[in-house]
Design a protein around this nucleic acid. Structure first.
Lengths: 225, 225
DNA sequence: TTGTAAAATTAGGCATAACTAATTATATAA
DNA sequence: TTATATAATTAGTTATGCCTAATTTTACAA
């Protein structure tokens, strides 16, 4: 009985606040939360007050919200389920990496603790999902890495793709077709080709990737030459 | 876009009405639906009117409801998902037959068409779930069988367990321990042992099963001797 | 410093799906 | 046939979680 069950909505808010405040360390603003969840700003204000009263967030009017310890734990639990499900759907049921996100978005709210455990066992307690995102462990701890966006590295650098962010199936499908996948080695040949595309070398092939898309590709530089 | 998505509640009502009206062929009464779903009678009246207005049930005040063609199709879809999930959890993730029902009760509402298909493929398009209940096919057709409850057969009869009904985990666990499982052969030795128990022979062992529990065991008689 | 635009909030509603209390219908027994 | 118990309904309330419209706060630029 350790878990009071949260509503689907509340879990989605916690995830959104995590995404928005984690990297920056600052409060997630109402408007950004509204955009993430495709709801209006007043809906967010209302929910933040509710979450505050349940001890899940720290809320300052006109500033935004951050997760409380309890809210963070809850967000990690949902994130863990999401990413375990993504990997499971790919490994067990042969779904492709551009399909798994939407399924996981629903299933993350429907898993019991027991089922979560069985899936983690089946997968061998993995640390990363199909997009290279780290999977929180059972106590909510997550691997922190120093990653840079592909758009931020210098021409001539060679890097390894660590994580591909963003949930747009079309974009993910495009990346898959172009070999932009976690653990692939990439050399950035030219940062400004065609006024807005990056020219890359992946698996002995030359590829062009738009700047907007490339901003979602997080890499670890292995050779500055 | 063929499926307007139904609420979890609506799907649960359709399932309950199916359970209550299918065998008997008559209307499912308000009170029985309320019991099945653990809600009050006024809640049922209200929901039946809503389902009627969406064309999912035929509702006669003071009589009850039956499923419309559309409601029946929807109920079969949910039932198919429920039973596929039960079997999948057992076969793929090693959950025992007394654990799978509660999980499926939630997941049946969270599966996409695509995921349903993948699971069915993984399982090889099965016809029965772990409890021996038939799984509707994609067009909603279901295998109809002539089954009798274990409590209805004569002493001396030998029968094969076809289906174990009821969702109580304790009862299912009990049946598992006593070998009362689909496809097992049973001989009914005595209908009135201990004033209320059935004396059975299963796998060369003698077992006693209470009348209430035995009413959930549906069999096909293979030998009247 | 003040005006304006953006962001956030309050106020007031709506739909869903539950509830209780009160009333009405139906079926059964005297 | 009538009294009564059971079942079902209506009426009115509640909690979620969303919405729009109006107002207030904040931040930035002239």
């Amino acid at each position: 009985m350790t878990n009071k069950s949260q509503s689907v909505s509340a879990e989605d808010y916690l995830k959104a606040i995590y995404r928005l405040s984690h990297a920056s360390g600052v409060h997630a603003p109402t408007k950004r939360i509204a955009e993430e969840l495709a709801v209006t700003a007043p809906s967010v204000t209302g929910m933040l007050k509710k979450l505050e009263s349940r001890g899940l967030v720290h809320y300052s009017p006109y500033t935004g919200a951050t997760l409380s310890r309890k809210g963070h734990a809850r967000a990690m639990k949902v994130l863990r389920r999401h990413r375990l499900v993504e990997l499971f759907l790919q490994k067990c049921l042969n779904m492709s990496w551009d399909e798994v996100h939407d399924e996981a978005e629903v299933l993350e709210h429907a898993l019991s603790d027991k089922l979560e455990r069985r899936i983690a066992d089946w997968l061998g307690d993995p640390s990363f999902d199909p997009h290279g995102a780290p999977i929180p462990d059972e106590s909510g701890r997550i691997v922190e890495r120093q990653l840079v966006a592909l758009t931020e590295i210098e021409a001539g650098c060679t890097a390894v793709v660590a994580e591909v962010r963003g949930n747009d199936a079309t974009m993910l499908s495009y990346f898959k077709d172009h070999g932009v996948l976690p653990n692939r080695r990439i050399t950035l040949l030219d940062r400004g080709a065609y006024g807005g595309s990056l020219k890359l070398r992946i698996s002995r092939k030359t590829r062009y990737v738009g700047r907007d898309a490339a901003a979602n590709v997080m890499v670890e530089v292995i050779d500055e030459s």
